[in-house]
């Protein structure tokens, strides 16, 4: 039975109806706990090592190659501000990241609850929502490179 369980998350090409039985309870929380520990450890490092100081982290690849901001530029400094509970500073660095963090937290909570109950993922987000998010990312990408909007959107 454990052989079948180990393929539960990774089986992509299988037919959707062939859901294998899953672990439940504490044994199923290994994944969410590992993600929480990894993210928490990264945030601790990010809180201690200031990305506002030069030389601590490499430059964004897109900015380095093109000289333009990408939607992720400033996200590391925004996360650093969030670890110090400076939401206003984080918003000034990357408002997209400030909006995305609660969504990611909600996804993690839903994943943990599903793992605990042993139920597979049933509901899917409407594709329209993802498309709206995609449009938001693309618009943000363009807008933060417009000099007139730079004071609000650029990092």
């Amino acid at each position: 039975m454990s052989d079948v369980v180990s393929t539960g998350q990774l089986a992509v090409g299988t037919t959707p109806s062939s859901g294998p039985p899953r672990r439940r309870g504490a044994a199923a929380l290994v994944g969410p706990a590992a993600v929480a520990l990894t993210a928490g450890g990264a945030l601790v490092v990010l809180a201690k090592v200031d990305p506002n100081q030069p030389g601590h982290y490499p430059t964004c690849p897109f900015l380095f190659l093109t000289g333009m901001y990408c939607p992720g530029c400033g996200s590391l400094r925004a996360l650093h501000d969030l670890t110090h509970l400076d939401v206003v500073g984080a918003w000034g660095m990357n408002p997209l990241l400030v909006l995305v963090v609660p969504v990611l937290l909600a996804f993690w909570v839903a994943w943990t609850v599903r793992s605990w109950r042993g139920t597979p993922r049933q509901r899917v987000i409407p594709a329209l929502w993802i498309n709206v998010f995609l449009g938001l990312v693309l618009a943000f990408w363009v807008a933060r490179n417009i000099p007139a909007l730079g004071p609000w959107l650029a990092p």
């Binding site: 959707p16 859901g19 996804f107 049933q122 987000i125 993802i130």
Partner: peptide
């Protein structure tokens, strides 16, 4: 349960 949706890696 119905058909399990494939992961979308969002």
């Amino acid at each position: 349960y119905g058909p399990t949706p494939p992961p979308n890696y969002l």
